[in-house]
Amino acid sequence: MSKVMVVTSGKGGVGKTTSSASLGAALARAGQNVVVVDFDVGLRNLDLVMGAERRVVFDLVNVVQGDAKLPQALIRDKRIETLSLLPASQTRDKDALTEEGVARVIDELREKFDWIICDSPAGIDKGATLAMRFADLAVVVTNPEVSSVRDSDRIIGMLDSKTQRAENGDKLEKHLLLTRYDAARAARGDMMKVEDVLEILAIPLLGIVLESPDVLTASNLGCPITLHNPASPAARAYTDAARRLLGETVAVTAPDERRGFISRLFGRRAAA
């Protein structure tokens, strides 16, 4: 049974692409057949974050419009055999995607892969609605910050009304992935705590990824952090999140406050 999972947030810059690549790589390392699909037509970046920017020949728009066959557009990861990427087009805009075309591509991907991870663009327009349209489950990426939480709330509303599952009255699992969390600041009362965000958004927690310079290092190198530095706290958070997605019961470990303090002293902000 293949699963279509949308990684979405509403707000930009919270870590959708980083999370899509990291979760995809972690699932692939666990032996799953995974494809990560970039839905950010016109502003593709997943190829860059996954280190495949020089291997893009055909893209999602080419396949949707029938100009290329799916296998021609899929890029297999050089590090993990079971991980593939379907890049977005850089030269077109989101109107180049049609619901019928995306439905056809997703159906075809379902035959080849266990996990189809749809990396949503920011916003709530066509690109974002098509990325979530055929999802079986959703990962809502949120920063502990007012604008991100507000936008996530809006996106959760859309997941409950605009997806095919919602329209058919089927259940669509939603998971919260809290990223760029700083446990020390939360402990001082300068940042909303995990419980605050969970209480407001009221969806189950998939994981907490601490603010970490390791994330930027991995994207600089074009390697998902779960492959580049599997022992780092951020990679462990993503790997644990992937295990939870596979149905394992893995306790969410309380973020280490001392580490947060140290990274505050020496660390720099990581771009999501």
């Binding site: 910050e145 007012v146 939480v149 507000r150 709330d153 939360a186 001082r188 009362g189 300068d190 940042m191 909303m192 705590k193 605050d196 209480e199 407001i200």
Partner: peptide, 14 residues
Amino acid sequence: RTAPVARDRLQILL
């Protein structure tokens, strides 16, 4: 402590 302010503002707004 600004986090409680953020939480309360969000709860009312949402």
